[in-house]
């Protein structure tokens, strides 16, 4: 198997999960209502757990450093997350829309990975897809409710959807290893995933009564997968690693 190709896939998935997990956790204590505070905090815990499991595979199977080191001691340039997950939490409507767009991609990605030829990844995927179902269900419920709430809630959801779409399409930025991963049966590829995702997301958005933004004309925000990030990642990492940097070798 092509080690570089697989590590690239694992890093981007792990980094996505860690960074969105960190963003989700920023709602802890300030959610618009108690249930939503809990929801975003719980999803944060799940995502960080998923990232840890992915870093663990990178560590055990490919001999890279420990999960904590990979999470807290890599530079911004080494991160492979898409820019969608880096964006600040913004208003609640944006966080919900991002959660909706990201988690549907995540759910489908793990579904595809349940048949991966990389055994530990297939096992993790089978496990994680059950957890992500709850995330997706949560996103769908709130999307439907707010799209059919007041005029303001509908307008906000639509505006956030329009804003987030070019970033969301950046989730599917192809790596140099697409053909290898597909050929070796590790992962079905970003193109296939994007196709499945668009179909799924369009259906839910339209049923909820929102307008699906024009995808063909979108100026897609790529770069994250190759280490080119938004201005927000650096400050997020600085904050996230603040304590570790005081004493990186400390035992917890």
């Amino acid at each position: 198997m092509n080690t570089e190709a697989i590590k690239d896939l694992l890093y981007k998935m792990a980094d996505d999960a860690l960074v969105i997990g960190h963003r989700n956790s920023e709602w802890t204590g300030i959610g618009p209502m108690l249930e939503e505070d809990l929801a975003f905090s719980s999803m944060a815990q799940d995502k960080v757990g998923h990232s840890q499991a992915l870093y663990q595979i990178i560590h055990t199977v490919f001999g890279e450093r420990e999960p904590d080191v990979l999470a807290f001691q890599r530079s911004e340039k080494e991160f492979k997350c898409c820019q969608l997950v880096e964006l600040p939490i913004g208003e609640y409507d944006f966080s919900l829309i991002r959660h909706f767009l990201f988690d549907h991609a995540e759910a489908l990605r793990y579904e595809m990975l349940t048949t991966s030829t990389l055994m530990p990844l297939a096992q993790l995927a089978k496990k994680v897809r059950g957890e992500i179902k709850y995330h997706v269900m949560h996103a769908d419920t709130f999307l439907k409710q707010l799209a059919n709430g007041s005029e303001e809630s509908k307008a906000r959801m639509q505006a956030s959807l329009n804003y987030a779409m070019p970033y969301a399409l950046g989730i599917f930025e192809k790596s140099a290893f697409e053909d290898t991963l597909i050929g070796e049966g590790v992962f079905g590829g970003e193109e296939k995933l994007q196709h499945l995702w668009l179909e799924k997301v369009t259906g839910i958005v339209t049923t909820a009564g929102l307008q699906m933004p024009q995808v063909d004309e979108a100026k897609i925000i790529y770069g994250g997968r190759k280490g080119f990030h938004s201005e927000y990642l650096k400050s997020l990492l600085d904050e996230m690693t603040e304590v570790t940097r005081i004493d990186p070798s400390a035992e917890w």
């Binding site: 249930e35 809990l38 929801a39 709850y134 949560h138």
Partner: peptide, 13 residues
């Protein structure tokens, strides 16, 4: 179901 997320990861409210 009030919330699929509760006091621990495995519980709903």
């Amino acid at each position: 179901l009030r919330s699929a997320f509760g006091s621990t990861l495995c519980r709903a409210i």
